[in-house]
Write a protein that binds this DNA or RNA. Structure first.
Lengths: 322, 322
DNA sequence: ATGAAAGCGCTAACAG
DNA sequence: CTGTTAGCGCTTTCAT
């Protein structure tokens, strides 16, 4: 009754009721450890997040949680903080706790390749979001960051901006590199010569954006438009621009990436590239759980690429100033 | 060797080395389920968050995680989404998974009283943040929200604002009520008559703040200053004010609560009341783990109240406009 | 100091 | 279809 085995076992309503009443009365709860020990699987997946304080992480986490929950699994969260030791610690913990699979969420740098493979080698199914391993067929779901960068930059080019700067993410960040590739492609397509001095190294967040923007403003030729690796960075840059007495978009146009909720509320509202985060996370979780449930083979591989969408708001529009 | 039992057991360096080498080679990891089953405890605590998509949650979670990690525990996260069924589900899961204790993080409404007591009755130690149970001595760590509301309102009163509106949090939210109590006290202290029409019901986030502010602006007498339940709501309100062609702080002064990072970067920068979140979460985790480790008695009780701090920025300062 | 054995709560397999 | 049993991997206890 308790395990709800519908198949090939019949229980009378009466018995069933009695059991459930007893469960209630005794406050009985199955002991998951014992069950897992016996079954040899934990019905738990490990979720690796690179930095849970980022606004993006919360949304990803919620999406994953909902799917995991729906499918009768639970999850173990790790906050890696882009730190190798923490990563090692948590992957060991996953092994100790016998997770059935691991979901890597939007890892920002190359740190984790070894860790991903360690899990894989152990026979633990792994799915990645926003990341792929060039030489290994590990299922992954990602947004077309190159295209996103291209679209954002083209949007600025279409407004007749030519001197467009790029604010990178943290050093070595793969996603940032992809978005920058798109940016450079867009420039190249229009025959604009790109200069290294158009790029400033930022970080994930407000402060990184602020500093990178300051650096850019200190340079001899100030850019007319800026494309930032993500929205938080763009908002940091926005503040820096303001603190110099300049105005967006009049003096400098600005485009971000992610479409965080706040992007629609900032002053000016922020033009940005939307990522279908929810779909990305949902799909990734689905693939992992399908593998665990035997609906997909253990060596299943597919790379899913989702389309980003440009969201035009005020921070990049000149006509707004009439 | 593996369990690092220093006490009353001696192992030669040589043996020790050999063991560790073997562990490495065999890729051995203790099976936590078996251990937990045998030991009768899981070294895991349950963490109940009300809404992990809120920027605040990430910071709280990280702080808790660090302490939990440092003390050799792990945690099980639940995202309640202010939903009773989810709460029930997760508390049952906690019981199934045999968590040793439960930490309730900043629960927003009265929903959880029953759940908290259910854990308590089961003999599972519980610690609360931003919440107390009136009739039950359950350890809790909170910010003095009344004082925070008082300080924020006094700040506005000191700037000679008299018609000050309050934007509440979600309906039934306890913390919101406390902040509002402070607000009303401050008004009363100065002999200002409070009117119900000065209050608008918001929510946790941007959208709630936007709508509540719109509502306020539609009323016959527009407030001269606004105190919002939290920063996100304040930022939503800011947008609403702007969308009506008004300016902060010239037309309307604005104060938030929380001091999210973004508050220092918005336009204008947001005056707010800082909560020592990290300290709050650190302390709460510490108490829970101390109880679990036997450093504090199982029935330990203390209510810790932390001091909020007013952070004055541009959104509430008139002189800035000279 | 080392080794053997029992048993945590559960489930799968098998016998009746 | 019901009841019994073995054993998952670990730790603790007890005997050597």
């Amino acid at each position: 009754v308790i395990n709800n085995r519908i198949s090939h076992i019949t229980v009378s309503e009466w018995t069933r009721d009695k059991v459930l009443k007893a469960v209630e009365k005794l406050n009985y709860h199955v002991n998951d450890q014992a069950r897992a020990l016996r079954r040899g699987r934990s019905n738990t997946i490990g979720v690796v997040a690179s930095d849970i304080t980022q606004p993006f992480s919360g949304l990803m986490l919620r999406t994953v949680e909902q799917e995991v929950h729906r499918r009768g699994y639970s999850f173990l969260l790790s906050d890696i903080q882009n730190n190798r030791e923490r990563e090692k610690f948590y992957l060991d913990l996953f092994l100790q706790k016998n997770v059935d699979g691991v979901l890597f969420l939007a890892l920002s740098n190359e740190l984790e390749e070894e860790g991903i493979l360690r899990m894989k080698d152990r026979g633990i199914p792994v799915v990645l979001t926003e990341r792929e391993l060039p030489d290994n067929p590990i299922p992954c779901v990602m947004v077309d960051n190159v295209k996103g960068g291209l679209t954002a930059t083209e949007h600025l080019l279409d407004q007749d901006y030519r001197h467009i700067a790029f604010l990178t993410g943290p050093e070595g960040n793969l996603i940032s590199r992809q978005r920058m590739d798109g940016y450079r492609q867009a420039l190249a397509n229009r025959g604009i010569e790109f200069s290294d001095s158009w790029v400033a190294q930022g970080g994930l967040g407000l402060e990184g954006g602020y500093r990178a923007m300051e650096e850019l403003l200190d340079r001899s030729d100030r850019p007319k438009a800026v494309f930032a690796f993500n929205d938080m960075e763009a908002l940091g840059a926005l503040r820096a621009i303001r603190d110099r007495g300049l105005t967006v978009p009049r003096d400098i146009a600005l485009v971000g990436f992610d479409d965080l909720p706040i992007a629609a509320y900032s002053e000016p509202t922020l033009t940005t590239v939307r990522q279908p985060v929810e779909e990305m996370c949902y799909r990734a979780a689905e693939i992992l759980l399908d593998i665990l449930d035997g609906k997909l083979p253990k060596d299943f591989y597919r790379k899913s690429v989702l389309e980003p969408a440009l969201i035009v708001r005020d921070s990049s529009i000149k006509k707004d100033l009439k």
